[in-house]
Nucleic acid binder design. Sequence first.
RNA 1: CGGGGCGUGGCGCAGCCUGGUAGCGCACACGCUUGGGGUGCGUGUGGUCGCCGGUUCAAAUCCGGCCGCCCCGACCA
Length: 487
Amino acid sequence: MADKADEKKITPRSQDFAAWYNEVVLRAELADYSPVRGCIVFRPQGFAIWENIQAELDRRIKRTGAQNAYFPLFIPESFIRKEATHVEGFSPELAVVTHGGGKQLEEPLVVRPTSETIINYMFAQWIKSYRDLPLMVNQWCNVVRWEMRTRVFLRTTEFLWQEGHTAHATREEAEQETLAILELYRDFCESYLAIPLVWGRKSAAERFAGAVETYSIEGLMGDGRALQCGTSHFLGQNFARAFEIRYLDQNNQLQYVWQTSWGVSTRLLGALVMVHGDDQGLRLPPTVAPTQAVIVPIWRKAEERKPVVDACREVYQNLCQVGVRVRVDEREGVTPGFKFNEWEMRGVPLRIEIGPRDIAAKVATLVRRDQTGPQGKLASPLERLAQSVTELLEDIQQSLYRQAKAAMDQATTEPQSFEELRAQMEGEGGGGFANVYWCGQPSCEEKIREETKASCRAIPLNQDVPQGPCIVCGQPAQERAFFAKAY
RNA sequence: CGGGGCGUGGCGCAGCCUGGUAGCGCACACGCUUGGGGUGCGUGUGGUCGCCGGUUCAAAUCCGGCCGCCCCGACCA
């Protein structure tokens, strides 16, 4: 009997995080494996989350003045080679098409790993004058990177993302844009996805191939490892020079443009699972949840069925009217208990139970996904249910953020010595963010990576901290940086 | 590419040592039952046992070869 119950449960998160993660993704029906190695299928439950992310992010991006466009999937191989660092960074992971229409192609076509080259090729033709600037485009698309080792959502051969590309007249303006997008991503992740972050500049070793500076937002997953959740790059004039993107300024002088690029991907789905999920499955913040509330009718005798179902449908209508994404689970032949577990696995933030007892008392029983046990359960009068639900969803959003923030804060330390850092990162259970003084030398960063497996995740901006000794070499350091084991 | 492991209904596995009608749990279909935390019972669908060859009257099982997948390492803006 115990075995049978266990069979329906997933591997506990604390027992084997990787197994837990895979089981949640599969059982919540977010994604499935495909016949092609490293490629996944986004199932309706997972894709609906991505669509919500897209919709909200798209609004926010457009508010900055960027416009959506679409560039080709195929890029002439020679384009990738035009920017030296870029080609070095991407060559090993390119998928290349050599044949088409039954014939070998004159020039192989690269399946885009990112679209800097082809977009900038077009930019060069569109930009003539300072009056054409700034030029800001965004595209939602798929990209392909032939990774050696893949993980669902976190690193897949093909993934979906949004990539923004901008060109500006001045360095200052481009730098400002880079940071504005970083802030846009930060706010989006924290407020919309309820994922707390650290953020800042990347070290040279972690920088995007072809960028002058890379900035990122970094989340901390449930197992103590960091996940890069979005990047914003200041490209300087690297691509402008490679692709001859020049404009005439007010003084009739030819100038190279200054550029940025930035993106977030379907990796965010992985972050949602790993930040919020628990042993019951997924837990979704209400803002991004495709279904925010599910109504489960409960009845025993045949004559109880109609009043219960009628009450459920009425509540459904009322909630729809106030904009709650709600559904009624009227399936027969499965018990309420089964439904409870299933919707919990899928991460629905709020469950509304309506049975004969509730109807008699003129209430509905509300059960919040973010709290287990009796404290997550409350009776709410039917007459002001819509308001209660709306308020509860808001509260659940805050609560999920607070829980994640508390976990991140608890896992964030300020080790004073290299030994302390090493001890923190050691073993499977080791991890978290280590906020340390670092002199900025690549050799010290490399030593940390070699000996602790932790890499530099972000160097916070506008630091106002006293000088201290580099945690590796002891030389005076002006800055602190976050190190962590990363996905 | 190096080290380790595994290929048997959709999923997880047993059977292989000692050759003889391919089995269990879950899932799925139907019926009754049940229903406020994964209800129980019954009936049923579904597999050329990764591929090729060999030994044998007979191969999931023994032998040889090949292929694929997973884990660890190397690698990864």
